[in-house]
Design a protein around this nucleic acid. Structure first.
Lengths: 198, 198
DNA sequence: CGAAACGTTGACCGTTTTCAATTACAGTGG
DNA sequence: CCACTGTAATTGAAAACGGTCAACGTTTCG
């Protein structure tokens, strides 16, 4: 299961961690990384693949917690908890880096710049998620697509865009052309849309 | 506009800030707290009321960013930015506390415990928002309600619950009774529902 | 050139929203 | 203690909307 330390880009401030704080490894589909209640020893950076985090409620039901994709870190809350609060399972073959929790915690006190950058990262994530939540709170497909487009979501494929805003790709396409027809957005070329400048 | 310093409970780690870092004040409906581009001097705790944060895209459209309710802090990203990235306007008469940004930043380096607790708060918010996002990603009303219920959302009124999970209250009621009929949840008394223990 | 992957559109169907009423309950004042 | 009022909880029916299925156009790339 353990592979080599070939990882390029950890997000700030994690690139500044000493090598011995990092462990790279792979998981195959279905493999479990940790279970709810396990002793928390690390947080994780997902280089490639997809991890599903689920929580078990007191009543015994399973509740989705997070779907991490390439580039995400997860289990950050484990920094401040003795145990993990959910299960983490690979839903795709995944390449990860474990970031030692205790090294991070001590670096937070020893290196103010590290702490500052970590706080910055968290704050920026909070901001991002709040915005996503606001977009998803828009019930009308037309307004949701428009808001998401205004907010710069549509960078790559339309399918991914559709996915991010919780709409079927068909509904997204329909809405997009509808917006073009209404003149609220323009379509410079196939697969590219942009909000019309005022 | 400036009122008195009668605020009880700031969330950790902000209760440990010195009084001179705090300024309590009120806003009436429609009043603006700050505008996108203004110099960022503070982050805010909303004691009571409701604040709407919106961003102006390059194209000139307005994109919702966050709706803060009583108990929320907002504009945390301002800690790491010279200016605010959005407008903040009161949509209800609101009572706020401004938390001086520079005091917070210097306390972060001077007081490791403060920095640690701040990071913990942010990490926990990230966790919370991710969970909310996962709940909203469930398209079926039945499963979404069930997951939200499992996750302990329904504490107060059903209407508020409905609101949090982006479902009409009628759909929520219907789904709730449907879940009761199916035996997946139980209803000890009017307006109270709970997931059946396994 | 042909196969994928992405983009696009139409039709149909199921679900949720919306609108409209009705019922339950808590609090208030007589 | 009761009528009175307001908020919350329910239920019904019709309309709107988005999801799904199916088919087709288009670009990319080996």
């Amino acid at each position: 299961m353990k592979s080599q330390t070939v990882f390029n880009v950890l997000p700030p401030p994690f690139e500044t961690l000493p090598p011995q704080a990092l462990t790279a490894f792979d998981l195959t589909v279905g493999e479990t990384l940790f279970l709810q209640g396990d002793t928390a020893t690390a947080i994780y950076f997902l280089q490639e693949g997809e991890m599903r985090l689920v929580r078990h409620s007191e009543a015994g039901t399973v509740v989705p917690v997070f779907e991490a994709v390439a580039g995400d870190t997860f289990a950050e809350a484990a920094l401040f908890s003795p145990t993990y609060h959910c299960d983490a399972v690979a839903v795709k073959r995944s390449a990860l880096v474990a970031l030692n929790k205790h090294v991070i915690l001590s670096k937070m006190v020893d290196d103010p710049e590290f702490g500052r950058t970590l706080a910055k990262r968290f704050a920026s994530q909070v901001q991002t998620y709040r915005r996503k939540l606001e977009i998803l709170a828009i019930s009308s497909a037309e307004e949701r697509v428009f808001a998401a487009l205004s907010d710069g979501y549509l960078t790559g494929k339309v399918v991914d865009f559709a996915d991010e805003i919780n709409l079927s790709q068909e509904a997204t396409f329909r809405t997009l052309s509808q917006l073009v027809r209404k003149g609220r957005i323009e379509k410079p070329k196939r697969g590219t849309y942009r909000v019309k400048k005022t």
